[in-house]
């Protein structure tokens, strides 16, 4: 299953202030860990929202409304993401806990979101029941 670790924007990222050398190195080390563990799929940092646009549809069926950046609600802006492929939600949480504090000055925030995947049936109770039934059958065959 895939998870996205989303790093939220801060006043600094929005102002285009570059992170400290120390943080950059910590992030690099962390990404290398992800690569060595075979879980990293993609990672990118985004530019400040000052050159972004927002497209909204205030009227149902109506025309889109375009708003130019920068946007004000900093905490709702994404500054970067890291996409990982792991075996369980717990594993994703472990990795997310190990990501360095992305800001370092009290405003760092990481959001962990699972990527929707219709093929991933592992969480489906029906699938689990089917698997359990089949395995029970197999245990009986193997034991008797």
């Amino acid at each position: 299953m895939r998870f996205m670790m989303i790093v939220k924007a801060t006043e600094d990222t929005e102002a285009g202030v570059m992170p400290s050398q120390e943080l950059v190195e910590a992030m690099q080390r962390y990404n290398e860990e992800l690569v060595k563990a075979g879980v990293l799929l993609a990672a990118d940092g985004l530019m400040a929202s000052s050159n972004a646009i927002r497209i909204s549809y205030p009227e149902p069926g109506g025309k889109p409304k375009i708003t130019d950046g920068p946007f004000t609600e900093v905490k709702e802006i994404i500054a970067g993401y890291t996409l990982i492929e792991v075996k369980s939600r717990e594993e994703a949480i472990e990795w997310a806990m190990r990501m360095p504090d992305p800001h370092g000055h009290g405003a760092g925030q990481i959001e962990l979101r699972q990527v929707f995947d219709p093929m991933d049936l592992s969480g489906n109770p029906e699938t689990k029941a089917k698997e359990a039934a089949l395995r029970e059958q197999l245990e009986q065959i193997n034991n008797g």
């Binding site: 563990a37 792991v86 075996k87 369980s88 717990e90 594993e91 949480i93 472990e94």
Partner: peptide
């Protein structure tokens, strides 16, 4: 489950 996750990593 946490043990499994740390074990995994």
């Amino acid at each position: 489950e946490r043990i499994d996750a740390i074990w995994r990593i």
